[in-house]
Simulated scan of single mutants.
Amino acid sequence: MRTHRLALLGSTVVLAVGGSLAGAPSASAAAAEPYCNYISDTARPTVRPDDEGNAVRQVQCLINVYSAYPTWLEVDGDYGPATAQGIYWVQTCNGTTGGADGIVGPSTWSRLYSPKPACAL
């Protein structure tokens, strides 16, 4: 899994150096598409500590692919302590509405898909 993050970073650098490609999706969107498809991009249920399932997998995957969170999360669908730390990091870095409460609601979902530049890879 770590190689996917490196591949994403390499794609971003190539696009930054070579310019954008007409009609091509952003490097982040292109890299996440095959990996973060546990739920629809428009299905954004509230995710809380101790939840399990595909929505948690989506959160874990998005943290791995889009954010600059320094620890790779296992995409296992279990909202445990490691996932909580990743969510708190995303919420704190992005300044989400409601603060760092560990609950993935609309503001956190938005920043998982579109992190602030300082919080992204």
Rank of each mutant, 00 (worst) to 15 (best):
E33V: 02
P25F: 02
A24F: 03
G80L: 07
E74K: 15
A100T: 11
Y69N: 07
P49D: 00
D41N: 13
Q91N: 10
A43V: 10
V59G: 12
C36I: 03
D50I: 10
A27G: 03
A43F: 14
A43S: 14
V104D: 09
A30K: 13
W89D: 01
P117R: 04
S110V: 00
T96N: 06
E74R: 15
E74C: 01
P115D: 02
S20Y: 05
A100C: 08
V17F: 04
H4N: 12
G10P: 03
V59Y: 04
V56R: 03
L112T: 15
I103P: 12
P70S: 09
A68S: 15
C93E: 07
S40Q: 12
T97V: 10
A31L: 02
V14K: 04
A43C: 10
N54H: 14
I103C: 07
V104F: 10
C36T: 07
R48C: 05
V56M: 01
T42H: 08
V17T: 11
Q85R: 14
V90K: 07
A68P: 10
S107K: 08
T46Q: 11
D78H: 12
R111A: 10
V104K: 13
C61K: 07
S107N: 15
V14W: 00
P106I: 02
A84K: 15
D76I: 01
S67G: 06
I87W: 10
A68L: 08
Y79K: 11
N64M: 05
K116R: 15
D51K: 09
L21E: 08
W109L: 03
G53W: 06
T97H: 08
D76L: 00
Q91K: 05
A118L: 13
V14Q: 05
S107F: 01
N37T: 09
K116T: 08
S11L: 14
V59D: 00
N54K: 11
S26C: 02
Y88F: 12
I87E: 00
L121W: 07
G102W: 01
D51P: 15
T92D: 02
A118W: 03
G10N: 13
V90H: 08
C36S: 04
W109F: 10
T71F: 04
A30E: 05
Y38V: 06
V14L: 08
P115A: 03
Y79P: 12
Y88K: 13
Y66D: 06
G105K: 15
R48E: 09
T92L: 00
Q58I: 06
C93W: 02
P45M: 01
N64D: 10
V47N: 11
D41F: 12
T42V: 14
